[in-house]
Write a protein that binds this DNA or RNA. Structure first.
Lengths: 348, 348
DNA sequence: TCAATTTGCGTGCTCGTTAACACACTTCTA
DNA sequence: TAGAAGTGTGTTAACGAGCACGCAAATTGA
């Protein structure tokens, strides 16, 4: 089926069919209806190759992420997924513009959004870790599609999200903790930085699981890596003598784990944390981390790019909300998740 | 960069550049080298839209799978993944032809391959559960790319694979069994049908893990669902009084689990099996199955289609071997894997 | 040596869609 | 009522690559 065949069937020219297809007016209502009926009847869809050849323009996706080299590489994994998708789609005129911001500094995200205004983009991928800034960025880029990644936020109609439920993830971590270290005692919940949404929700899920179990207590500790966090950790073992395990609510678990190992408490402490960044992989291989929960950061980035591409280039629908499965990583299945988390790669 | 710009730079016509690009001869060696140098220097790649518009032909992927409605739906999950990818790619002229065969009947797979010869295909997705037949099918379809799914086999150069390591999966199942049911005793390993490759490797991995643990024994039982398998299961509990858990090496675990529940042994038996087919989801929700290992069948199918599409339409490279991660599913993360296993869907 | 073939290269049409343009006809507006 | 503005429709030139064809010039063969 081509536009020309549709035109013939409707007794009009291709120009008219085109005007109907793109709602460009200048068509009488009666002709319009006739053409629409035939399009529907023949289940016509414009040829994507011809369309994009004619349009002949890049599809630019703007990406706003926290500083990639901070926070032990979690954001870098997301970035890798985005880059990989972009590489696969480079033949289909998809381009990526990445803008980094400092999530600790208010306004930094907004400022990055302003930089983006200079090279206008057709769609947006946004980690709304600073919700207020994110709202402003969205306001500054009206009418383009946006996908939230890592965290969600109240969504305008044109946005959707790719996220994991952090409460469920924490709850599952509780279950794993209980499996790996079933003796009664205390589990420490280690928070870092000020509580980000994901972090606090994970802590909440974890505690809720523990609260439902007989004889399991939890104790929250705040570890500020700019401060004397080592001391706090050591004190914890002094003040609380029945520590059975430590749950770190983010990807910095490898730092906590190696310190616990250093001060000799590793043998009696089960350690659980998040995400398959290289440092965590290494510490799990070393036997210092028992279990990791993964939120598939690379897949999140990969999936976000593909969704925007399908909407922008192929005119397909956006998923409203994509829920990322909660992966359990033990030493026994670590090797099956090597390098890219689960995305087939192309060689460059 | 277009062919015309390349031509201008090389001081030749587009026809000559085209002949160089497609090795169609009729170009003097010296001109050829000059053009190639410029192509490389400019990093020129032909526009995928223009190319496919001109070629204007469907890319047909032939799919050979065991009977979809047998075996409790595992193959159906693979099928769903394939269908989903095909739906997303239908705008890019990818078409799927599915041929089913009976894996229990020798020659059935080959016969399906012969049916396929009538509507020639451009690429192949093949579950080589009958390796001899698979070899013949490949021989009958020379020169086209092929991806093995579910299981691999010795590969000709033009084939690649999307599979999970079944030994590692069984080994991990052993670990989970030991976590969920740590008391010394016997674990039953339930095989069904005659040992397929994946099944026997999973059993081997599981037993190997157990052999490395103190005080854990394993006992293999063969359950033939056409025979009196219920009786065999009941006898097992009579002859072996310390059964701690049952490991079913495939997706039929829900049948075994509900029978164990029926005969009253569920409370003291940990049950582990494979794959998120609907029946297994339900029995896990009912609390009858403790743990499932998933090999992401939907992703396998999805990924196979996408890889062939990238090779066939976009001229990108095929992955040689894609290793599927080994997923651990517990009741606590079951809901995060709902419906499609991890593939974003488009509405039809 | 000259006809027949081969080699090396350029030309031009085509794929389906888009969007600018042309043009006749109608409806306003002063 | 003339001119302007608006409406409904058809025509056509790209977009970039592929490929058939044409045509010299070079090479072959008897």
């Amino acid at each position: 089926m081509t536009i020309e065949e549709i035109a013939k069937l409707a007794g009009v020219s291709t120009g008219t069919v085109d005007r109907v297809l793109h709602n460009r007016g200048r068509v009488s209502p009666v002709t319009r209806e006739r053409v629409l009926a035939i399009i529907k009847e023949q289940n016509f869809k414009p040829n994507a190759f011809a369309r994009n050849l004619k349009l002949n323009k890049e599809f630019r996706i703007g990406v706003l992420l926290p500083l990639l080299h901070s926070e032990y590489g979690y954001w870098n994994l997301i970035y890798q997924g985005i880059i990989n998708a972009a590489k696969e789609l480079s033949d289909l005129s998809v381009k990526i513009d990445v803008y980094e911001f400092d999530r600790q500094k208010g306004g930094s995200c907004f400022e990055a959004g302003r930089r983006m205004l200079k090279n206008p983009v057709d769609a947006l991928i946004l980690a709304p870790v600073c919700p207020d800034d994110a709202k402003l960025v969205l306001a500054a880029h009206p009418d383009i599609d946006c996908i939230f990644i890592d965290t969600s936020m109240p969504q305008p109609h044109r946005a959707s999200s790719v996220t994991q439920n952090p409460y469920k993830a924490g709850y599952l971590a509780g279950r794993m903790m209980n499996l790996l270290s079933p003796n009664p005692g205390t589990y420490a919940v280690a928070l870092t930085h000020r509580a980000a949404y994901n972090a606090s929700e994970r802590a909440r899920g974890f505690k809720e699981f523990c609260a439902r179990q007989e004889g399991m207590r939890t104790k929250t500790v705040e570890l500020n890596f700019e401060g004397n966090w080592g001391k706090i950790l050591e004190d914890l073992y002094v003040t609380t003598t029945d520590i059975q395990g430590v749950f770190v609510v983010n990807d910095s678990v490898h730092r906590v784990a190696s310190h616990i190992n250093l001060i000799g408490h590793r043998p009696k402490t089960t350690i659980i944390g998040f995400d398959l960044i290289v440092q965590n992989r290494k510490e799990m291989e070393n036997g210092i981390i028992d279990c990791l929960i993964s939120q598939r950061p690379e897949f999140q980035g990969y999936s976000a790019v593909y969704q925007l591409y399908r909407k922008g280039i192929l005119n397909q629908q956006l998923e409203k909300e994509t829920e990322i499965p909660i992966d359990i990583i033990l030493p026994e299945n670590l090797s099956s998740t090597e390098s890219m988390d689960y995305i087939p790669r192309i060689r460059s």
